[in-house]
Design a protein around this nucleic acid. Sequence first.
DNA 1: GCCGTTTTCGGCCCGACTGTTTTCAGTCG
Length: 571
Amino acid sequence: MSNLYKYIGTPERFRALSYKKASNVLDDLPNDVTEYIQNNTLEDLPGIGESIADKIREYINSGTITKYEQLKKEIPHELLEMMEIKGFGPQSIKKIHTVLNITSKNELMKALQSGTIATIKGFGKKRTEAMLENLNLYQQTEKRMLLRDALAIGESILKKLQKIPEIKNIELAGSLRRRKETIGDIDILISANNRDRKKIIHDFTNSDMVKKILAKGNTKASITLKQNDKQVDVRIINDLEWGSALLYFTGSKEHNIHLRTVAKEKHMKLSEYGLFNQISYVRIAGETEASIYQALGLQSIPPEMREDKGEIKLASEQKIPTLISLKDIKGDLQMHSNWSDGTQTIEEIARFIKNHFNYKYIAITDHSQSSRIANGLTEQQILKQIIEIKAINEKLDEAFIKTGIEVDILANGNLDISDEIMAQLDWVTASIHSGFKRDNTDRIIKACQNPYVSCIGHPTGRLIGERNPYKLDIKSIIETAVSTHTALEINAQPQRMDLKDDYVFLAREKAVKLVISTDSHSIQQLDFMTLGVDLAKRAWCKPSDILNTMTWEEIEKWLKTKKRHLMHEMA
DNA sequence: GCCGTTTTCGGCCCGACTGTTTTCAGTCG
């Protein structure tokens, strides 16, 4: 409906804005919208007032919205889907529709190619050529990069550009700096003297990584990369603007808009060039991000939190938490050895970690028997592995390695390993590796109720860009995790990132204990921990929200509470 | 259509670029 109103244009542009905002809020809703209807709390949601609430209720009850159906009749809604494409704005589409009476995508494409559209007043040759190019680009570059890949690419580009001597300051910005789970394009901010800008742009656009130069001016340039066709945008500014520019180019868009509203209320004006007095235009702040937040009466907000999900209010109350960081992590509680589908021996893994990480403990969690492809362990093998780990620990002269398993949750919710065996292990992660097509809420709840299950592994089972999460009532899972003292995993494998940030956010609010683990299958993957920590930051997690920031003694205590609690209940 | 530690009416982020204008609308980030 927002798009339909955008099409109508000026008289309805604020209505369009309202619908867009409400749509964003609905998109991020933790619970099913019907719950808010039942509790009569729909109108309490930000951006949803009486009118939109009525329409939501109408849609839930009848499956349609009268107003929407009415609008659709007057407006070529098939064309409005093209508004996602660069150069296809609502007013352009409107003009094409009213002048040429075009109503479908196919007609529009034909008219573009034949040059008919270039005959409309306001549409020259250059513009229609750009539209065609953007259309092709849109069709081939829909896929986004995984955070891990984008970070690697971004950092290698930084390394290259840092060799340009005229660059004073350089940093990755955009969604990459906010550590979103997937990244569309890579934004880089540079500060330099005005006279050096041209040379920097020249060096950047002529470097060997460039496949195509999309735009090239005095302060900005865009290219596509040889290695994956992805876009890289570079902006150059001066030192005085560094903070305001970094703030602006880091986003999110919603966070920026909200900040600018705050500035306006305080009779200031915020742009990428700085924070100014609205009347005198005197510069108030801009050199650092912190100076701007401070001048707005706000606490500094970490990039990972900048999604306009309430962080600005929190900052105004000076309640931004100290987020978890990599150095808080005391151990990694899911990894695989060559006993199942991992690459290295247990001893190799343990020695590598002791040399390269500051961990106090690790858990070896090979697969259980029903994971045949992953060479899962039988109960006999698990007992043998316990003996081997004991021996290695003696060699290392400390109880560094904890015994564990990633036990399969079977189709009926039972576990693949008997309670007697699990009782002998230090740490049990239970995961689903089959039956992805059905609702798996019941299986996970049943697993949580087992006193020996410490944690649910990759709870939603998704593989980003490859496999959707299975159906799950996340709210029930979170409730069960709380009531049964079961931890939920933040699996830091780049294509998993499971639980995702929104769900971690919900779990944290309900005080679920979370475990960040790498699920490493080789020692090279142990570094994924940083991705998991970044995800936890996006969910506003403090160290105390994360179980593996605790000492092993504290974790043991926590595990015992669960056993005592559930045994008592069963008795 | 939504919202309110200046407001229940009158606002709704800010600036750059592009293509096409002859002073600006539309689009983008």
